[in-house]
């Protein structure tokens, strides 16, 4: 629908779930729906869902990943969050 956001993801900056997004828990993780751009996105692990839900509590995405995700998986989750920024599920604070 809407064109991709031109916003790039900086993991050292603060991010949060967009207020336009609803999350619904599912066995595989969660569905995220953006009511504005009508995008439906699949969050494919429970860990990613928790990270996304709690992102707004931390001073940066890096710190959030450090607090919520097991060590050694940092880069993988930076990439996952980056995709969620592209689809506007996350937004900068």
């Amino acid at each position: 629908m809407a064109s991709s956001s031109a916003v790039t993801f900086d993991a050292s900056a603060p991010w949060s779930l967009s207020p336009e997004v609803s999350l619904r828990d599912e066995a595989f993780g969660a569905l995220a729906y953006h009511h504005g751009n009508r995008r439906l996105v699949f969050l494919k692990s429970r860990e990613l869902v928790e990270l996304v839900r709690r992102l707004g509590e931390f001073e940066s995405a890096d710190v959030a990943i450090g607090a919520v995700i097991a060590p050694g998986e940092h880069d993988r989750y930076v990439e996952a969050l980056s995709l969620l920024v592209t689809s506007e599920i996350l937004r900068g604070r």
Partner: peptide, 20 residues
């Protein structure tokens, strides 16, 4: 909206509520 094979398998077992 793309989905990989494992996700499709999950969908075939049903979700907590419909998408559509």
């Amino acid at each position: 909206m793309g989905a990989d094979a494992t996700l499709r398998d999950r969908f075939e077992r049903g979700l907590a509520a419909p998408i559509c």
